[in-house]
Computed example of a mutant assay.
Amino acid sequence: MTEQETLEMIKLFDTTIKIGLGSIIGGAFTYYTVNLNHKNKLKEERISKKTTKQIEMLEEIALRSEDHFSLIENFIRKIYSITSVNEGKYFSELSESKKEEIRGFYKEYKDAIKNEFAIVSKLNILNMDNANKIFKELIRKVVDYRNDILSSPRENIKLTKETIKNRNKEIRKLRDSFHLELQGFFDKI
């Protein structure tokens, strides 16, 4: 082997090594890039699924709460219409038919209590503590309102339009605060 052939062999090995190393480096970077893109895509899909699920839960809370608020509003309207005719009377002084009207409507409201549990559980899952607190306060106000009107020891509460209006304002204020909390959470998603 001549010196010329030896130099050509060295150049050939040198070129082969450079091409091989270049391929290995290129392959490694390609693998790293594809792997990173795949991980990012999976992360985006997970975030997208989570966001979609949160939006679905928020929509369910909104629908259930609107049904619930509608029942509350109807209960208040019923009390108000009865009070308009019977201003200043005590519940015990109402006619039996009016008492049964109020009790009957509250029975419908009691049937909707399962909505309360669904709403509270979804609020807990979404970690919406303030909305949960407001909703529970609203439930407590409605129960107190009902007890003021229907419960035996409290049947001596006078039914006045002013009392009904004030209770209604309290409940509406809580309902509006609850809606603002839902909107704020939706905006954060």
Rank of each mutant, 00 (worst) to 15 (best):
M9K: 12
I164A: 03
R167Y: 14
K89I: 01
I125M: 02
I47Q: 14
S95A: 05
V143K: 14
K110W: 01
I10G: 01
E116R: 05
I119A: 08
I72L: 05
S177V: 01
E155I: 15
Y31P: 04
I134P: 03
K18Y: 12
K18L: 15
P153T: 01
E108K: 13
I55R: 14
H68N: 14
L42F: 06
L138V: 07
L180I: 06
I139F: 08
L123Y: 04
N40E: 07
R175K: 15
N115A: 03
K89G: 06
K141T: 11
I119M: 09
I79M: 10
L182G: 07
Y90R: 09
F13H: 07
F117T: 15
K78P: 00
R167K: 14
T52Y: 15
D14V: 03
L21C: 13
R172S: 11
I55E: 11
S84A: 12
L174F: 01
F135Y: 07
D129Y: 03
I10S: 00
R154C: 02
E3L: 13
F178K: 03
K53F: 13
L71G: 14
P153K: 04
L21N: 08
T2L: 10
S121I: 04
I134E: 06
G20P: 00
S97K: 14
I164Y: 08
S48G: 06
M9Y: 10
K39M: 02
N166M: 04
K49A: 13
I25W: 12
I171E: 08
S84G: 10
A112C: 05
I139G: 01
A118Q: 13
K53G: 04
S152Y: 09
I79A: 15
I24P: 02
T15F: 12
K99W: 02
D144H: 11
I125E: 06
M128D: 04
L7T: 06
K98R: 03
